[in-house]
Design a protein around this nucleic acid. Structure first.
Lengths: 107, 107
DNA sequence: TATTTACGAAACCTTTTGGTATCATGTCAA
DNA sequence: TTGACATGATACCAAAAGGTTTCGTAAATA
C-alpha cells in the first residue's frame, strides 16, 4: 500500500446511523455516556462501543470529570471528511449538466 | 420512525477505501467495470459488488454501451453527504466553538 | 465504612461485509 | 455461425460489525 488512508477511521465512524445520531446529539452539548445511551434502544456497552469508534475517527473527545466521562464533539474529525468530499466540488458545478445529458441521451 | 435516513446508503458506500478509490478514479473519467477492476488486487465480481453499493448510494450512474457498461461519477450522491456534514459547519469556527464552551460552563 | 453510581473490559452470539470461484447471458467480430 | 469478450448472478466462506450479558473497579454518597 502506498500510504495509509487517513480518512478511513472517519468514514468508518460516519457509516453507522447510530453514530451519526450521536454526533448530532453532541452538537447540542457534551454529555456523559449513560446520558447518551438513554436516548437509544440499546444497552450502554453498545453505545460505549460506538463512542470508541467515534473517538478512533477523532470525531469526539473525552473529558474525564470525576467518575463521569464527558463526550465532546470534535469538529476537526468532521473536517477531515469534508475535505475529502470537497475534492469533488468541481463536479457539482460544471459537470453536473453534462453528465445528465450523456445519461439521458442513451436512454 | 420520523423519516428514513436518506444519507445512510451514501455514508455506507463511502465507508470502504476501495469504493472511495473508485470514486477518485471515476472523477478522472467514466470507465467500464473490467477497466476499473484492473486497477485493484481483487477479482472483477468483488469490484462489481462495490459498484453496486456505490450505485445504491447514488454515487455513480451506469450507461450501457454495447456490451460494456460505463460507470460515471454522480456528483449528487456526494452532495448528499456534504450537506449532512455541513450541518456542523458552525463548529469549525474556533471562536464560535469557544463561545459555546463558555456558555455551557455557565449552565 | 458500606453502598450506590458511572464506567471499562471481556466473552459470546448473530448478521453483515468483502472477498472468492463458477456459471449464464448478451454482444461483437471473424 | 462460431467463438471470444464484457458483464450479471449465484453460492459459498472468513472476518468484521453490532449487539448482548456479565463482571471488575474507581468515585461519590448515605
Amino acid at each position: 500500500m502506498p500510504h495509509a488512508d487517513k480518512a478511513q477511521p472517519v468514514f468508518r465512524a460516519l457509516a453507522d446511523p447510530t453514530r451519526r445520531a450521536i454526533i448530532s446529539m453532541l452538537a447540542d452539548g457534551a454529555r456523559p455516556i449513560a446520558d447518551i445511551a438513554a436516548e437509544f434502544q440499546m444497552t450502554r456497552p453498545a453505545v460505549a462501543k460506538h463512542l470508541a469508534i467515534l473517538r478512533d475517527g477523532d470525531l469526539i473527545r473525552v473529558e474525564p470529570r470525576g467518575r463521569e466521562r464527558i463526550n465532546h464533539l470534535n469538529p476537526r474529525g468532521l473536517k477531515t471528511a469534508a475535505r475529502w468530499i470537497n475534492l469533488f466540488d468541481r463536479f457539482w458545478d460544471d459537470r453536473l449538466g453534462k453528465l445528465k445529458q450523456v445519461v439521458e441521451e442513451k436512454s
